[in-house]
Design a protein around this nucleic acid. Sequence first.
DNA 1: GTTAGCACTCCCATATATTGAGTGCTAACA
DNA 2: TGTTAGCACTCAATATATGGGAGTGCTAAC
Lengths: 355, 355
Amino acid sequence: MGFELDNRKKRILQAVIKDYITTAEPVGSRTIARKYGLGVSPATIRNEMADLEEMGFLEQPHTSAGRIPSERGYRYYVDCLMQKEELSFDEEDLIQREYRSKIDDVGQVIHVTGQLLSQLTSYTAVVQKPKIGFSSFKNIQLLEMDKQRAMLVAVMDNGIVQHRMIEVPGSITGNDLAAISAVLNAKLSGFTMESIKNTLIKEIYIELAHYRRTIDLVLDVLRYSLASDNDDKIYLGGLFNILNQPEFQNVEKLKTLMGLLEQEDLLSNLMVADPSNSGVTVRIGGEISYQGMQDCSMVMAIYGVKGQPIGSLGVLGPTRMDYSKVISVVEYMTRKLSFALENLFKGLVDKEVKF
Amino acid sequence: MGFELDNRKKRILQAVIKDYITTAEPVGSRTIARKYGLGVSPATIRNEMADLEEMGFLEQPHTSAGRIPSERGYRYYVDCLMQKEELSFDEEDLIQREYRSKIDDVGQVIHVTGQLLSQLTSYTAVVQKPKIGFSSFKNIQLLEMDKQRAMLVAVMDNGIVQHRMIEVPGSITGNDLAAISAVLNAKLSGFTMESIKNTLIKEIYIELAHYRRTIDLVLDVLRYSLASDNDDKIYLGGLFNILNQPEFQNVEKLKTLMGLLEQEDLLSNLMVADPSNSGVTVRIGGEISYQGMQDCSMVMAIYGVKGQPIGSLGVLGPTRMDYSKVISVVEYMTRKLSFALENLFKGLVDKEVKF
DNA sequence: GTTAGCACTCCCATATATTGAGTGCTAACA
DNA sequence: TGTTAGCACTCAATATATGGGAGTGCTAAC
């Protein structure tokens, strides 16, 4: 692949795509000849473009218009033609500054990352929150709120803090809660949500036989409720950037797209990147198989800690997207995010890493 | 007020407004005569409408069009003509069901409230998160994360849980942190953020003389950082409902409005309801003095606990809004939200209530 | 293989009817 | 004096031509 086209065709295809990305208008042969000096006349370019169309790389909106890239064209561009664009000094500086102050909390880190992704690309950022299943308990506290209720607070090693109010029998005192907390901490800390073994749970039951009902509730909340509260949550940034895209000046289109973006589960599915591809995954137009997203492309990557993937992030924009720019930004930000999260782990003794 | 118009004029004005609210089209004299049987001919209605226009209650988009309500017209309608519309059984039932499961956490309650507000009105919901300054500390924990850092977790009496990672000197151990937590709890619990007195702080310093630097940091975070993290935060629900309003089919308008809604501080200002008005505040068109929101109206109310206001909620929609419906919903939901928060307080001993 | 030339296509912007809902005014009527 | 039928008038919105222009494909010459 990359060899089916001769050099001149490649250069012309590249020119068409670049021009279309910036102008959003069909590109004619004259434009190519003028703006991108290939040393040939418009007529020659016309012939080449006709060939490219026949091969499926270009399309014509109507007979007497210029050409626009087809999805296949974009795909070829992304795979073979495009060259990565480095981030400017100003951009790197901006990222540095934004991150500097906000690296102490997972929520903040995700937020900043989304902001930057959208700001730097002018498209919409989609950032999956880190799956909590992969983090391990650092500290569990059961705190008295009133006679009937206690606040369960779980601090994870990566700085995620989850909490949930639970009902407890009126007979349980603050001291009871402290005792329960102590046992839970002793038994569970260091373990991930998913790796809580039955043997562990049995031990807990034995030590806290008195509080069976409360323990049941707490363990249920810890295992199911808290994880599902956090997992598959998605942060959307720069949603309104869509409004600047000429392809979404039509309110009807906007409505369908917004309707889709409202559904978190759908976005979660969308964000399942190809893990075999260690770098950036690009989905172009119809490669996203959702009704109403055919005009969109998605550039995404998986972030993680210690080689272990814990979420993904991406940028959603029109098919006519500045892939070169976006891919660089996504790549860079993925590294940044992974690094920031890595920092939240720093100082922790090594823990079991499973893939 | 309410007496400047004779009965027939009132009925005609009301008819025009009701019709315009549902159709979004200028209303003609024939329509009024046909749809709202007043027992007079279109010609008579025309005369009356001309009068109403002269008095400033109606406007004409152009000479040969029907009439639309002016802002003054809407104002008169809201103040004198409109009758409240009760919620249907189905609606009350929906609210009941939604609230049932999600009343254990302030965040959830706010979320559900916003969802319902937007769903029931088809406009955009704006819900201020409860000011944390009014809640008091229930429990403060300083938990070891690694050698350099600790997680500060503050549980408030109304169920708000805040946390923040802080740097601590490497010399401080887990036991030190526990000791600090114990003192902080003993001294601060029961007090609101705002009412932490200097005498208290002195006492803390005396008891924890060893940890001066850490204490400084913790108190700073408690007093300034955590509160500002939460206060003036705003939950927006049903943002996309705007897309269904005919007045926002124009993408340019959408862009300005969305741009405004992006700015939380601006929304906070907007949400300052008139506290003298114990019930619902209605801001119509130009009464909202922000460039770009002239076509919008806002219906809002203050919610609170034990007579003490802790935030406000509202609905933002086009000036051509179903005021009758929206006002009922806002009123109802304000009660619901206050009640739900009240529940989060239940069981607590009475605390100082200041206004 | 490349290019100038040219007829052809089709969108788009502009100008030009046509329509129709709605008005204001007048004059007749109760 | 208030109400109403009648009618000419207005003006946005919708269709209907019209011309210009950008761009093409094809042909023939280089």
